[in-house]
């Protein structure tokens, strides 16, 4: 396989022939912000945060889906790109309900981390505050549509890694949402294999494990008593 040499932010970088700009940059230790990209799953090119400038091309190109070319001169961190990234993140924050302090993913959220790293201090757009439902019908997992950013990672892992095809998109524009099967409650799904890959893939608090988060968390105190009692009565020693 032939290698390609390109320039990223003024630095000469070599990359494998079929690599994307994102892969080449990551390998060279240059970080490009991403949100819908997930290693191991095919890319959608949807979030537009990884847009980069390529010399000689007037359009901005998504680093996750654009293949490297010989002599390509890529800039990943210009003033213009930083401005666009910050605005895009603000649009996301204003779109649904992203209040970190009360979120199950607080401090473990890619959206939050990105906002910090891109210097997003506040949101200049008016919050839309839509009222979306929370689907808590599944025995193990929950989905809060208010925190969904429609990156479709869950849909892609469900179809292409698990192969179950449970998660889908429905509606369009601001009314788009992630659905289960043909818009059934998650708990009623016949196709869901309870694998949890969608929860692993979710960048925000939209998909979560039940019972482990904030107010839901239940502590099993009876277990302590059970252990002490069992020890005292020597219940674990096999009788002769």
């Amino acid at each position: 396989m032939a290698a390609k040499t390109l320039i990223i932010n003024g630095k000469h970088v070599s990359a494998e022939e079929n690599a994307t700009i994102l892969e080449a940059a990551t390998e060279a230790g240059i970080s490009i912000p991403t949100l819908c990209h997930l290693d191991g799953v095919y890319d959608a090119g949807a979030c537009r945060l990884c847009l980069v400038e390529v010399a000689g091309i007037s359009k901005l190109l998504p680093a996750c889906t654009t293949k490297v070319a010989e002599g390509m001169d890529v800039s990943t961190d210009t003033e213009r790109l930083r401005k666009y990234r910050r605005m895009t993140l603000e649009l996301l924050f204003a779109e649904r309900n992203h209040v970190c302090a009360v979120c199950v993913s607080n401090n473990h959220c890619e959206l939050q981390t990105l906002a910090y790293s891109q210097g997003m201090e506040h949101v200049r757009f008016e919050y839309r505050f839509p009222k979306w439902e929370v689907d808590n019908t599944h025995a193990l997992f929950g989905m809060d549509h208010n925190r969904c950013i429609l990156c479709t990672r869950c849909v892609r892992v469900c179809w292409h890694i698990e192969g179950a095809g449970t998660k889908n998109e429905s509606g369009r524009g601001a009314k788009e949402r992630i659905i289960t099967d043909l818009n059934q409650p998650w708990g009623a799904s016949d196709t869901c294999t309870n694998c949890g890959k969608c929860v692993m893939a979710c960048p925000t608090g939209a998909l979560f494990y039940k019972g482990s988060t904030v107010s839901e968390m239940e502590r099993d105190r009876s277990k302590l008593e059970f252990i002490v009692t069992a020890r005292e009565k020597k219940q674990w020693i096999a009788s002769e």
Binding site: A44, G45, A46, C47, R48, T88, L91, L92, A94, E95, F125, E126, R128, I149, L150, T152, E169, G171, R172, G173, A174, K175, E176
Partner: peptide
């Protein structure tokens, strides 16, 4: 455009809503 945006990319989906507003 806001009604017809497919919702895939953020600038079009959320940006048209803010512009309309």
């Amino acid at each position: 455009c806001m009604d017809e945006s497919c919702g895939k990319c953020i600038p079009c989906r959320a940006g048209t809503v803010q512009m309309y507003h």
